[in-house]
């Protein structure tokens, strides 16, 4: 579903992503761990073609991302870190707008259902986003992803700044999408969530994927040890 081969991105002398090899299958939830600046966000941005790779291949559903940037976008949904949305529009309007951009047009009821499914209370739907908390904005982002009905989900630190309850709801949603054979790539700092919800874990350091394992292979304390071992 998602594939990177010897993926490299350099900025001048600095190597942001270094010969990264990665394959994510339908139904996988791949959690990228690593310190800030390890290259997690850069990897996600490369899959989105926001930046072009210096070397290597990158594809979604076997389609080359660099050659067909618009085609590959049809299959993916993306939630950036700290999504601000449009503060002067309400949640429903934001959702309608982004769905419309993807070429989809939904009835009012269908839009409301996406927001409810994402966990946003109905009384908030028609409030301006400027009044929303970070968690509420994140839920609108999830609704946008749900509405797109994508096979690939790219998430950049989706749970950072969420309270434990919201974080838990989010994990449940990911599990639901996993059942629908969605392939998820998620950058995160949350070791606990990564172990709980992820199927695979990768640890990045200075642009390199230094560790790659399934969550079944390891328990919590070992994961933390392994992580800290790489960071030091």
């Amino acid at each position: 579903m998602l594939e990177a081969k010897d993926l490299t991105k350099t900025y001048g002398n600095k190597v942001a992503v270094d010969r990264l090899n990665l394959t994510i299958q339908p139904g996988d939830i791949f959690c990228l761990l690593g310190a800030n600046g390890a290259g997690k966000t850069t990897t996600i941005n490369l899959f989105l073609n926001f930046i072009t790779p210096t070397e290597g291949q990158i594809s979604i559903k076997g389609i080359d991302v660099v050659a067909n940037p618009l085609e590959t976008k049809k299959h993916l949904a993306y939630i950036p870190e700290n999504l601000m949305l449009y503060p002067n529009l309400n949640g429903l309007e934001n959702l309608e707008y982004f769905s419309g951009l993807a070429g989809k047009s939904f009835s009012r009821d269908a839009l409301v259902n996406f927001l409810l499914e994402a966990g946003l209370q109905e009384d908030a739907h028609k409030k301006r986003v400027s009044k929303y908390s970070k968690g509420m904005r994140q839920k609108v982002g999830i609704a946008i992803a749900l509405a797109k009905n994508a096979e690939v989900l790219l998430l950049d630190e989706p749970t950072s700044g969420l309270d434990p309850k919201a974080s838990n709801e989010f994990a449940a949603l990911l599990q639901k999408l996993k059942q629908q054979q969605v392939a998820t790539l998620m950058a995160t700092h949350d070791l606990f969530r990564a172990k709980e919800t992820g199927t695979h874990i990768g640890i990045m350091k200075e642009g390199q994927l230094v560790e790659q394992l399934t969550t079944q292979e390891i328990d919590h304390s070992d994961l933390e040890k392994l992580y800290l071992q790489h960071m030091n």
Partner: peptide, 15 residues
């Protein structure tokens, strides 16, 4: 760009 919506727009398939 500052609010992340540009990324969202492009990810929705708008050039």
């Amino acid at each position: 760009r500052e609010g992340g919506t540009l990324k969202m727009m492009v990810s929705q398939g708008v050039s």
